[in-house]
Amino acid sequence: MQIKMVAFEPMNEIHINEVKILEDLLKSIDKNENLKEKFEIFFEDVKNHFAFEEEQMKKYNFFAFLPHKMEHDKIVNQLNEVSKHLDDTLYLKKYFNETFIPWLINHIETIDTVTAGFLNMVTKQ
């Protein structure tokens, strides 16, 4: 899976790592192996990813903090629901391929790009 690089390197590192973890989870879904373990690793990574971005946005008083955080909260809520369906590989494939991956690509290309540009600017001062 290819993702867009943004102007704030710590975010790129987090995104690249998350994609690796996601790809590992998708392999586990295909094989129907270690789903609980792989999902927990992925979900923890997502929460850490969001916490890092939210901490940076708060620290530098990012103007669009609330809508960005609301997007994160929406995904955390979805993943909480997904966690109840770890025995259903069709459900998992559908969620990740039709909901999460398109959301992640769009999120990085839009609000993360804006956030990264802002963070890049304010951390260089």
Score class of each variant (00 low, 15 high):
V6T: 08
H107Q: 11
K84R: 14
K94S: 11
P102D: 14
V6E: 10
F96N: 08
E13M: 08
F63N: 12
S83Q: 14
I41P: 02
V46H: 02
V82D: 06
Y60G: 00
E53Y: 09
F65G: 08
M70S: 13
E13P: 00
D73W: 05
I108T: 11
E55R: 02
D88G: 07
K74P: 10
N12P: 13
I16H: 13
Q56R: 14
K84W: 01
F96D: 10
F50V: 05
M11W: 05
M5T: 07
K58Q: 13
V19Y: 07
D73H: 07
H72M: 08
K69C: 04
K74D: 10
K4G: 12
F43I: 05
I105E: 05
L35W: 13
Q125V: 09
K20S: 11
N17V: 00
T110W: 06
F52W: 08
Q125E: 10
D45Y: 08
E71Q: 15
A51Y: 09
Q125G: 06
H49A: 03
F43E: 13
P102R: 02
D112H: 02
I41M: 04
G117T: 09
T89R: 07
I75E: 03
N12R: 11
I105Q: 03
P102Q: 01
K59N: 14
N12H: 12
H15F: 01
V114R: 04
I29G: 02
L35I: 13
N48L: 12
W103S: 05
E71T: 06
T99V: 12
